[in-house]
Amino acid sequence: MTISRRISLTLLVAVVPCWASPASAFDGADVASQGVKAAGRLSLFETPSQAFRQGMDGYRSGNFKTSVEAFEYAAANGNPLARWKLGRMYASGDGVPQDDDKAYRYFSQIVANYDEEDGDRRDLSVVSNAFVAVGVYSLNGLPKTGVKADPERALEMFQYAALNFGNADAQYNLARLYLDGADGALPKDPRQAVRWLALAADKGHLQAQALLGHMLFNGFDGMPPQRAKGLMWLTMARDAALGGKDPKDAWIVDLYGKAASSASDSDRQVASLYLDEHHKRN
């Protein structure tokens, strides 16, 4: 089985002990600097939330200059939604020049300012996804800006989001680390990988379903194949991949095709029963 070592930032979807929040990950100097720059626009916005709403209005209308100014004000004044939106925009070059360094810094601000003691958090999905984004950047590094690859920090980010938020993207990325190993930070452990893939797959994570199905169909780490169960997951992943029509998901269709071509009639029949049971439960 060949699995790419690099995890894409586009992959933005267990009862265990709580981990301490790694809030020391980001130097607050950037926040202060942005606050000074945003102060000049104070008269334009009554509150950070109002600035964020105005930024979204500008974004939806295609007025990116206005929206970025509003988002920057809201972000500099602690609005995690604005920080997430700016991070996403810079990560993908959506209305702004693509800039992974800026994206990383905005995502890091969210991680650094997360307070798990705050009981009234309506932005947990944003916080959860920010942990995953910082994990991906930490795993791959940013050579042009001096951010070195740090597998241990990537592992910390993925574990935190997987354990505390049940984030499917984090669970999938954590499984990938267990499959490949993490440069000394984590030994290879296919059985742990399957555990995390199963959790993400149950949440509908397309790539997790495909990898889980592939491993179960073929067997792994001395475990015998579960061909019908594997074919069930591969079928679900294939159907979703075809529905989405994303060229990046061609590998999923390919995995399904290879399994289906070697599956017996019995494998297909039992897989169909498993699939019906899964749909009924969900």
Rank of each mutant, 00 (worst) to 15 (best):
D239G: 04
A25F: 12
A263H: 02
L206G: 01
F64R: 15
A208Q: 02
G55T: 01
D120Q: 10
A74R: 02
S266N: 12
A263N: 01
Y137C: 06
G55F: 05
G93K: 07
Q109W: 14
Q50S: 14
F165K: 07
D150Q: 07
L273G: 02
V15R: 12
A263I: 01
A38S: 15
L44N: 13
G219W: 00
Y73S: 05
S33E: 12
G55S: 09
L174R: 09
A198S: 14
K229E: 14
L81V: 03
F52W: 08
E117D: 12
T10E: 07
P225G: 04
A103E: 05
R60I: 14
A260Q: 13
P143R: 10
D120E: 11
L42Y: 00
G58H: 04
V136L: 15
F158W: 05
K245F: 02
Y274G: 04
K248Y: 03
P22E: 02
Y137T: 10
A260W: 06
R6N: 13
K203E: 15
G222N: 10
A130T: 07
A14T: 09
M223K: 11
G244D: 11
M89N: 05
E156K: 14
A201H: 05
R122M: 06
A259M: 01
K188Y: 00
V96D: 07
G146L: 10
Y137I: 08
I110R: 02
R122K: 12
H279N: 13
N173M: 14
P190M: 10
D150G: 06
N173Y: 10
E117P: 00
A182R: 03
A25R: 09
W233F: 12
L211E: 12
A76Y: 05
D123K: 05
E152H: 00
D30C: 01
